[in-house]
Design a protein around this nucleic acid. Structure first.
Length: 790
DNA sequence: CTCTCCCT
């Protein structure tokens, strides 16, 4: 009878909320074990039965919420709906390859709903970007004719609208990843859609690795991975040969034209701006339509803008408007791209326009074929940002930006065989980035060693070592790479590990208030706007908070000023004040949100900020706990050999690990370079730049860097006046001497050698001296020298 | 005298 009840109950688990079924199954296993030992289980069975009942009622309540599903008729994914439905029933994993316009992003969640998903648990749908997550959710809600935040919700950092009745939840992949911390089984989802997997961000790769391990533990969970590029076999292989479905896109053909900057002998003197002007002329002759040009950075954009403004506008171009577009641009200037306009537009853009922003109404694309790519060099231990030729996939993505409206034309300012020689795909982020944050998470979630984790692309051993080295520097792991208590705390802070370390130091040293402000400020994009044509005015406005010994204190001053204003100003007035002071209101708000979030984490633990402000030194020492790898000493040699007549000569620094660097011109310290420098970031572009800097006192280093210092002891010698054996020690941090020739008691370092020297130089020396004395006063010997203590 | 882009 009991055995029957047990199996009857477990057969009902498949009708429970996914959130409950795992816990209930565990409970039933426990009862089964008790029963086999002959122990009574009736009470337990009753409880489980009640919980199953409640859970099933919850499922039925969710089922009642199901909206009538309508599809946008002719989208390619919708036309093959039956196949998707069949695949979802048959398989646990489906790889869906669908290019732009296939409808995969908006229609797939609805198809999943039609397949009966979303009832026992949520349909989770991830997007790489916050704006996309929100707008995708809004779009699906609209198509299902339900208000956003109810049956269809979204969640991104700082904001979201989700309720108990939510069936489809759209979120950033970062949110889903973070949820693993509190719910390792991701048990509230019955379906997951990882969209835009081809982008291969760190979050996506981590998720795909994690999900591979999770799927066997969650047999009722369905996973759909979508990619806009054709390399879906990798994803399929990763999930043990999962089925692939390919759905065509809805784009117009794009004609490719190759116009290399130096194509033939006539072009020998042609530079990039000239090649661009020629391309613009060529496209202008084709007819009306806006042109989108891709550059590697702001500098190229500015050069091109200048050249275009001087360029005699061909008549058929009509009124031409030139608009730069890059992420750092103020919100108002970015918004201009979306405003209606007459005439022709030429938009000069960085990679933002490749994936993040879709510029409307583009007929033509001009592609320089270049991009700045961030790569962490494990060998040098430094982040690089170099201009590189983009991959074929990225070039196709750029070209595709003119095929949404009608047939387009893309001019590539490089040769066709150059394109053919390029790598097919951009290296996934996991191969290009510092892995400290990933490894910290893996350690804290006890996911085992990185080498054994099923990443699509395994990170290089040197990258892994560099990450552990950094974690050791931050004291997050010990010499044996075991997570420390501090490391466990660090892993819970949703910021870069270096910055998280500073906050923890702030907690310990009574400057949490200051650290929360500075760290959240360093994490968000710099709220200080500096429009190219009004740089001086912007600098003047920002000078109010400028501190020439510390960019960190500038941030703090800006924050304090802003908080004071925010206390008595309306939101509208605050917004106006930001504009007047060349501050981005949106980024100031993000800064405050992040500050709020971090602060909340400490308040939950009952830790509160210091109320009295602390000294600047205390602030900088806390900062230094995270920046021991970014310390540098001014290069005095260079200063002397380059006399002051050339004022432009950049002051050079000798950093740890033998790095040479200079202060970034954006730093307030560039005109008053201190002897000792601490930088929040080192970035190699044209040279290594230290960004966000402060002058420091080298005496702070030793107590904070004890675990990293190497000691060199030299010139042990007997000291006649103290009677001791002394020596000099030089302490180095990653090869940079930070304590020079300090006198030390040699006996504490090498007692044996000290004793040898004591006998050799002290006793025998004294005896020699004694002999002399004895010789001189043979008849009246002096008192014997008393031996010095070793 | 200057630095692509995202995310918890």
């Amino acid at each position: 009878m009991t055995a029957l009840d047990l199996s009857a109950l477990s057969s009902q688990l498949d009708n429970c909320l996914t959130r409950d079924s795992h816990a209930l199954r565990t409970r039933l296993h426990g009862l089964k074990r008790r029963a086999s030992k002959g122990l009574p289980i009736d009470k337990g069975l009753l409880e489980v039965a009640a919980q199953i009942e409640a859970s099933q009622q919850a499922v039925e309540a969710r089922r009642a919420l199901l909206p009538t599903i309508r599809y946008a008729d002719d989208l390619p994914v919708v036309l093959r709906r039956e196949e998707v439905l069949a695949a979802l029933t048959k398989n646990q994993v489906l790889i869906l390859c669908g290019e732009t316009g296939s409808g995969k992003t908006t229609q797939l969640p609805k198809i999943a709903l039609e397949a009966g998903r979303g009832v026992r648990g949520l349909i989770g749908h991830t997007q790489p970007r916050r704006i996309a997550a929100r707008s995708v959710a809004a779009r699906i809600a609209e198509e299902l004719d339900t208000p956003l935040g109810e049956k269809v919700g979204y969640q991104v950092r700082f904001t979201g609208q989700v309720s108990d009745s939510t069936l489809i939840k759209v979120m950033t992949d970062g949110i889903l990843l973070a949820e693993i911390h509190s719910d390792p089984l991701l048990s509230k989802y019955d379906t997951l859609i990882i969209d835009e997997a081809h982008e291969r961000s760190l979050n996506i790769d981590f998720l795909l690795g994690y999900l591979k391990r999770l799927l066997p533990k969650r047999p009722e969970l369905k996973l759909i991975v979508t990619s806009a590029t054709l390399d879906v076999e990798r994803f399929s292989a990763h999930f043990d040969g999962a089925d692939i479905m390919s759905v065509e896109g809805r784009t117009y053909p794009v004609e490719m034209r190759y116009r290399p900057v130096q194509g033939d002998d006539d072009d020998r003197d042609r530079d990039l701006p000239r090649a661009l002007l020629d391309a613009v002329d060529e496209l202008a002759a084709e007819g009306a339509g806006d042109i989108l040009v891709f550059f590697d950075g702001e500098r190229g954009i500015r050069e091109a803008e200048e050249a275009l403004r001087k360029h005699p506008v061909p008549r058929h171009l009509g009124a031409t408007e030139i608009l730069p577009l890059y992420a750092r641009l103020s919100a108002a200037d970015q918004a201009r791209v979306f405003q209606k306009h007459g005439g022709r537009r030429i938009i000069l853009a960085t990679n933002v326009a490749e994936t993040s922003l879709t510029v409307p109404g583009i007929r033509y694309v001009i592609d320089t074929g270049l991009a700045r790519v961030s790569r962490f060099s494990a060998h040098a231990g430094i982040q690089r940002l170099q201009v590189e030729p983009i991959s074929q996939a990225a070039a196709r993505q750029r070209a595709g930006r003119c095929g949404r409206l009608g047939p387009g034309i893309c001019i590539r300012l490089y040769a066709e065989d150059d394109f053919a020689k390029r790598p097919a795909h951009t290296d996934p982020e996991i191969l290009r980035t510092n892995l400290a944050a990933v490894i910290l998470r893996m350690e804290s979630w006890q996911l085992g060693h990185v080498d054994d984790f099923p990443f699509l692309d395994k990170p290089d051993g040197r990258q892994i070592k560099a990450a552990y080295d950094l974690l050791f520097e931050l004291q997050a792991v010990d010499e044996t790479r075991r997570l420390s208590a501090l490391g466990a705390q660090l892993s819970r802070l949703p910021v870069d590990p270096r910055l998280g370390r500073m906050v923890l130091a702030g907690e310990r040293d009574g400057c949490l208030a200051e650290m929360l402000v500075i760290v959240s400020g360093l994490t968000v994009q710099d709220p200080r706007d500096r429009p190219p044509e009004r740089q001086q005015a912007a600098d003047q406005a920002h000078a109010a908070w400028k501190n020439t010994t510390s960019d960190f204190l500038s941030l703090l001053a800006l924050w304090r000023w802003y908080e004071e204003q925010a206390r008595h100003l309306s939101q509208a007035k605050l917004r106006g004040l930001c504009e007047k002071n060349f501050l981005s209101y949106v980024r100031m708000r993000e800064w405050r949100s992040l500050h709020q979030e971090l602060r909340g984490l400490f308040h939950e633990e009952g830790v509160h900020e210091n109320e009295a402000p602390v000294s600047e030194d205390v602030v900088h020492r806390a900062l230094m706990t995270g920046l021991l790898g970014h310390l540098a000493l001014r290069d005095e040699e260079k200063r002397k050999t380059n006399p002051a007549k050339d004022k432009r000569e950049m002051v050079s620094y000798q950093g740890v690990k033998g790095r040479k660097l200079a202060i970034h011109p954006g730093s307030a310290l560039v005109k008053t370079p201190p002897k000792w420098l601490m930088s929040a970031q080192w970035l190699e572009t044209t040279r290594v730049w230290g960004a966000m800097n402060a002058a420091i006192n080298p005496r702070w280093i030793e107590p904070l860097a004890k675990h990293l210092l190497s000691r060199e002891v030299s010139e042990p010698h007997y000291q006649l006046d103290s009677g001791r054996v002394a020596a000099f020690e030089t302490l180095s941090l990653y090869g940079l001497p930070v304590v020079l020739r300090r006198a030390v008691n040699y006996a504490a370092i090498d007692p044996l050698d000290a004793r040898r020297i004591f006998i050799l130089e002290g006793v025998l020396g004294a005896l020699e001296g004694w002999e002399v004395v004895a010789d001189q006063a043979w008849s009246t010997p002096s008192p014997q020298p008393s031996p010095a203590r070793g």
